[in-house]
Design a protein around this nucleic acid. Sequence first.
DNA 1: TATTAAAAGATAATAATTATCCTTTAAGTT
DNA 2: AACTTAAAGGATAATTATTATCTTTTAATA
Lengths: 133, 133
Amino acid sequence: MNNYTEILRQHNLKATPQRLEITNALYTSGHISIENLYDVMLKKFNSISLATIYKNINLMLEASFIQEVKIPNEKSVYELTKETHSHIICDSCGEIRDIELNLDSVISNAAQSSNYNIKKSALILSGTCKNCQ
Amino acid sequence: MNNYTEILRQHNLKATPQRLEITNALYTSGHISIENLYDVMLKKFNSISLATIYKNINLMLEASFIQEVKIPNEKSVYELTKETHSHIICDSCGEIRDIELNLDSVISNAAQSSNYNIKKSALILSGTCKNCQ
DNA sequence: TATTAAAAGATAATAATTATCCTTTAAGTT
DNA sequence: AACTTAAAGGATAATTATTATCTTTTAATA
């Protein structure tokens, strides 16, 4: 039994073969767009419907099993929910990497100057990765 | 003469009445979505085409006269290009505010741990504004 | 194994965005 | 100030992205 079966169920999502494969694609790629996910899924399920992709992505988002990452000038990608982290994308090869950064002081500064009660942050950095430099 | 005429021209954009009004809407609102912009524009140009909105937004983006702001779980909004800044959005009333935050140390940490040559950052904070608390 | 609510697949419908084509106009030139 | 022309606007078709509908299949539980 795939170890994501239980986790899907914990999120009130039935562990269908399609969902396990979506999960696998997310896990393997780290970050994947709808169209890339559809391509990957077609290899395993030659008659999967695009509607199934959308429905599952939306249900998984609602269940907070996955997260959407909105990247400037790019299509959205999706990732399995994990510890809070930031993202860094290479403007040359397009690689998207997770990066753990401590934003505490930035957020406390922001809270002070804005009077907002800040709950979430989304930071996306971009530049050139080691390979592309 | 509206003071944005020259600035539009400096970006190789003809200063048409429609563009001046788009600019005015961006300036007045700070941040505006396509559909809200279309509504605002219709009040001044009762037969403006939605295609005109899209074409201009895209040309203005290419010319870096404006920027797109991608907000988690929200539609994109657009703003006039200005000094680098972050954004903070209220999850209750939806207010979007610019906020100047010093990300230097976060970025240098990120550069060090990722080996990326970082050029840009996009930080969006969310929470509850003073009024909504 | 039988039951059932939920999920998948096919596809229609809707929404968002872009392309096309013709008319109008901003901006430079005479 | 009229002339020229590339670019912009408007109308609308086409395309792309996303959601809804309906029927069949299946995961989960009894």
